[in-house]
């Protein structure tokens, strides 16, 4: 390193010494320590910079700026309709999907009710009193019970996070993942900040991504959950992807849990498949020690755009 290079670097050395431990300046500082002329130049440069910086730091701030700032921000947050909690909750609710067969189950329950209510009418009772335990009433109650049971088992009960497949191949995982995400998901932790979700996963010794596709890097988090596939732990992380505000799910495994190979991230977008069931698209890739499955209820091109 010559004098000219050292001076170019040291010109960016902050006069208050904040950059003392920055390795980028180490060689130039060492040279200044050995070379008297360069050392004198640096001392002079820092003195001039410090004087100017001190003058700048005394440039007055408008008296009411701080109060005005908080007033403007308070008004922004009090605006009708603004509620960070509501915003997050609505986003999380939007991700809940009704089960596939709910419509058919309801129709089937209605058919049972119809069969009951079209039974031949009972002979008139001598007392001619309304009997709530008559066949049609029982039928209605039974049908209601069936519907309630169907609703509970299909809709209100969360999807089972413990999945069993014949073997943990990428195709099997993709299919199980779509099944799981098509149900009602209860997240273990909800937070819009990705970092908070990764900390939760780390504290529970669950895998999380080191590098994300570009479209997810600044996405808001929704939440995360532990899954188990054949008793192998995996993480589900849900994101609110900015383009179109779609929800994107990322399932992360330890790589050695997966049978078969996956492409690297750079090639993953060329391998977005389209599950024929319910419009889900899937992309999968691996890095050194993790395997990733990214799913979204969207066209493959939309999922590919997240890369």
């Amino acid at each position: 390193m010559d004098h000219a290079q050292a001076k170019l670097i040291l010109a960016s050395f902050r006069p208050n010494g904040s950059d003392l431990n920055d390795p980028a300046f180490a060689e130039a500082l060492a040279l200044a320590g050995e070379d008297k002329a360069l050392g004198l130049w640096l001392a002079n440069e820092r003195a001039k910079d410090l004087a100017f910086a001190e003058s700048l730091s005394e440039f007055p701030i408008p008296e009411n700026l701080r109060e005005d700032l908080f007033e403007v921000l308070a008004n922004a947050q009090d605006a009708p309709g603004y509620s960070e909690f509501d915003h997050e909750f609505a986003g999380a609710l939007a991700d809940i999907q009704p089960p596939n067969n709910l419509r058919n189950d309801i129709l089937a329950a209605m058919e049972i009710e119809q069969k009951v209510t079209t039974l031949p009418t009972a002979q008139k009772s001598p007392k001619n009193k309304r009997n709530w335990f008559s066949m049609p009433a029982i039928g209605v109650a039974a049908a209601a019970g069936i519907v309630a049971a169907v609703l509970w088992t299909s809709f209100l009960q969360p999807s089972n996070p413990h999945r069993q497949v014949a073997s943990l191949t990428p195709a099997a995982i993709q299919s199980e993942a779509v099944d799981f995400l098509s149900g009602n998901i209860s997240l273990d932790r909800k937070n819009p900040k990705q970092e908070a979700l990764y900390q939760f996963l780390a504290s529970n010794e669950l895998p999380s991504p080191h590098i994300l596709p570009a479209g997810l890097q600044n996405a808001a988090g929704i939440g995360c959950k532990r899954l188990d596939f054949n008793d192998k732990p995996a993480s589900l992380i849900c994101y609110q992807s900015t383009p179109g505000d779609s929800v994107v799910h990322l399932i992360v495994f330890q790589r050695d849990a997966i049978e078969g190979d996956l492409p690297q991230l750079a090639k993953a977008k060329d391998n977005c498949t389209h599950c024929s069931r319910d419009g889900w698209s899937v992309a999968s890739w691996r890095d050194e020690d993790k395997a990733f499955f990214m799913l979204g209820k969207m066209e493959p091109e939309q999922l590919a755009a997240i890369f």
Partner: peptide, 30 residues
């Protein structure tokens, strides 16, 4: 002196003004 410092920064070429102001504010590394 404070006003003169800001005055001098305002007279700099536009390409220098922002990086130099940030440098002298000392809040950020290069």
């Amino acid at each position: 002196d404070a006003k003169r410092a800001v005055n001098l920064l305002a007279q700099l070429d536009e390409t220098f003004r922002a990086p130099l102001t940030l440098f002298f504010l000392q809040e950020q590394s290069y």
